[in-house]
Design a protein around this nucleic acid. Structure first.
Length: 668
DNA sequence: ATATGATGCCC
DNA sequence: CTTTTGG
DNA sequence: CCAAAAGGGGCATCATAT
């Protein structure tokens, strides 16, 4: 990929490079622009069959065999009779292909499917060879399957730009008086980019390093810039103007554009957490079960909210902006109080905007938005939060109320805090924002030092779970905010990760679905049921597609193939039509399945009707643990146990308020 | 008009 | 979201 | 250790079928 990019840098146009990068990363626009293709397998199958004159059933059939729509399209293409007199079409260019993708994304409304298919067909008949067909289809499907994705594209790009410097790059020595005026934060550069201090810049310029190390340093620069401004447009524009060492000066974190959020690594035990912390000072925070929200305020007063995947959710949570502003004002009120009490002692000068008497003017907060019952004053499960409309005219009058649980601050009054320690970021967070009843709170936390004592941690984890949370987030006090997947420096500890904790089920495989991609040739997922003793039927409670080793996938496929029901579904299987597997099995095995939660389900049938008329129970985050050789299908977890486990959840226990019947006004 | 299916995006 | 795998 | 690629439940939304 590096070689390819180098050729384009040398011989192509900026538009060629831009198109190549977008195609290679299989995206059409920066995430925060919320551009959707609106293309799924159904439309692709339609396009393939129409373009190559095969019928849809045949196409679907070969999907099973080949396990990949791209391969299917390729084989259709090469089977197609080529007419001797037909001239080869003009070659498709990068610009043309990404342009077609973007055209597709722009179509909506009535008959949009037809127009989209038309564009795809034009692409398909315009290819030079069947390999192009394969990748056009895969690109539209969003699964390139070339063993390379975002971060690899960035590294390749970095290497290419290092080895082949674009002719447009200006190598001026007097630095930043030409292009640096566009940043909104008129004041000083944040400590972030004092070039001499930045270890990445240092490494890039260190001539004593090996070529490999130098390339790595350049890649780190590109990764850092992209994680601060996740837009290939912005990245490439900058990279074509300034040398890589100055890239972060030309393109950096600013309110209004989401930064890739810091993520956490799952951990399997308290021991593992302590081992990883290795004696460092750390804090534990409740891990709330809501939706990640990065809240931005730009100096012009605009407030924006972004999701974990950088899509804008401002319209989904219109009240969140108000809540945060109220929190900022509450902090001012508190400051005034303090000021009165202790007369001015001015060692308070930490250069962060200090006491101004006015709320902060720009900031970026990291928070979790959680559904909240204002009347009863407690948190509400994720399933209810998810019923929020995508656009709410007024948040405060919405059926589902929310509360902001804040846990980090990445930007404040014109300065990036990404390079500050968590301790410092949190100090500023608590200084410039204050809790507002029912609207804005700080994530509940416990500070500690590793001293071999696990009891305190265990208790805190228990308390978190009882308090409607998923578990804990564990963070060291000294770490900076490292955006993106670059390093999973935070740890998450959930009850169901722990061996012997969390809900475990013994379920019967009722059927299976053909695997795709690297699971071609084996079943990729199975349908599982619990046993209902009254009706003597198996009721579906989940599908399962994770937790298997490659070996498991092979052996399970082989052993269950001995028990296929050739006549179709057994009459004792209670399964919704939309879940119909490709193959049905006799009930012969029992599998141990772990799950995080149970939820009311309109598709699954566990304990059907016992909880709510017409609905059953399904599992959240199910994964395969092992085969239970010791159990017969009739000894599988039964539906009464499933029901009991549903009621046993802390999130459900907390709700009832003495009412035997379940609260029907909650929407689930 | 209303029901169903497809798609994308939260977790 | 969880999980496994190959480099 | 990390990136990539398998796969999950369930919701709102939009297009199309009835």
């Amino acid at each position: 990929m590096t070689k390819f990019f180098r050729r384009i840098i040398k011989f192509g146009t900026p538009a060629d490079l831009n198109s190549a990068v977008y195609l290679a990363s299989n995206t059409v626009a920066p995430a925060y622009e919320c551009v959707e293709l609106g293309i799924g397998d159904t439309l692709l199958i339609k396009a393939i069959s129409e373009a190559y004159g095969s019928n849809k059933a045949t196409v679907k059939d070969s999907v099973q065999k080949l396990g990949d729509l791209g391969l299917v399209a390729r084989s259709c293409k090469s089977k197609q009779r080529t007419l001797g007199f037909a001239a080869k079409p003009k070659p498709l260019t990068l610009v043309r292909v990404i342009g077609a993708f973007r055209e597709i994304a722009a179509i909506s409304g009535s008959s949009s499917g037809k127009w989209k298919v038309d564009i795809i067909k034009k692409l398909l008949v315009g290819v030079q060879d069947s390999t192009e067909t394969k990748f056009i289809i895969r690109g539209l499907q969003g699964k390139l399957r070339i063993g390379l994705a975002q971060s690899t594209v960035l590294v390749a790009l970095a290497h290419a730009l290092t080895m082949t410097i674009p002719s447009t790059v200006q190598v001026d020595d007097d630095g930043n008086d030409d292009n640096n005026d566009e940043e909104e934060e008129e004041e000083k550069d944040d400590g972030d980019d004092n070039s001499n201090e930045d270890p990445i810049v240092k490494a890039m310029m260190d001539e004593s390093l090996t070529v490999e190390k130098t390339l790595e340093a350049h890649a780190n620069m590109i990764r850092k810039v992209y994680s601060e401004v996740p837009s290939y447009d912005a990245l490439l524009d900058a990279a074509l103007k300034v040398p890589l060492v100055k890239l972060n000066e030309a393109c950096q974190f600013q309110p209004g554009i989401p930064v890739e959020p810091m993520l956490a690594k799952p951990t399997k035990s308290i021991q593992e957490v302590l081992k990883r912390l290795n004696g460092q000072e750390f804090t534990c925070e409740y891990k709330y079960d809501g939706e990640r929200a990065q809240i931005h305020k730009t100096p012009d007063g605009t407030l924006k909210v972004f999701s974990r995947n950088l899509l804008e959710t401002s319209n989904k949570y219109p009240e969140v902006s108000n809540y945060v502003q109220e929190a900022a004002e509450a902090a001012i009120a508190n400051q005034k109080e303090e000021k009165k009490e202790k007369k001015d002692d001015d060692d308070d000068d930490d250069g962060d905007g200090e006491f101004t008497g006015r709320p902060v003017d720009s900031y970026v907060l990291d928070t979790e938005v959680v559904a909240f019952d204002r009347v009863k004053g407690h948190l509400v499960p994720f399933q209810i939060l998810s019923t929020r409309k995508k656009t709410q005219e007024s948040g405060e009058s919405a059926t589902v109320q929310v509360i902001v649980q804040a846990f980090d601050l990445m930007y404040l009054n014109g300065k990036s805090l990404l390079c500050k320690s968590f301790k410092e970021r949190r100090r500023l967070l608590h200084k410039h924002f204050a809790p507002v009843e029912g609207k804005f709170q700080f994530a509940k936390s416990l500070d500690a030092v590793e001293d071999g004592d696990t009891i305190e941690l265990e208790n805190f984890l228990d308390a978190a779970v009882k308090g409607q949370c998923e578990g804990l987030m564990v963070k060291t006090i000294v770490d900076i905010y490292e955006p993106s997947r670059r390093s999973l420096n935070w740890l998450k500890l959930k009850k169901d990760y722990l061996d012997g904790c969390g809900d475990s089920f013994d379920l019967v495989p009722l059927g299976a679905y053909f695997g795709r991609g690297k699971r071609t040739g084996v079943y990729g997922a199975y349908l599982l049921g619990c046993y209902d003793e009254e009706t003597e039927e198996f009721q579906s409670v989940c599908k399962i597609g994770t937790g298997f080793s490659d070996e498991d996938l092979k052996s399970l496929s082989a052993s269950l193939n001995e028990h296929k029901l050739e006549g179709g579904k057994s009459s004792s299987y209670n399964v919704a039509k939309s879940l119909e597997p490709d193959v049905w099995f006799d009930s012969v095995q029992v599998w141990e399945i772990k799950a995080a939660d149970l939820s009311k389900s309109s598709t699954h049938r566990g304990a059907l009707g016992k909880l709510e008329e017409g609905r059953g129970i399904g599992l959240r985050f199910p994964r395969f643990e092992r085969i239970r050789e010791d159990k017969k299908p009739s000894q599988a977890t039964n539906s009464d146990q499933v029901l009991e486990m549903y009621y046993n959840q802390d999130s459900v226990k907390g709700q009832g308020g003495g009412d035997d019947y379940d609260d029907d006004d909650d929407g689930i």
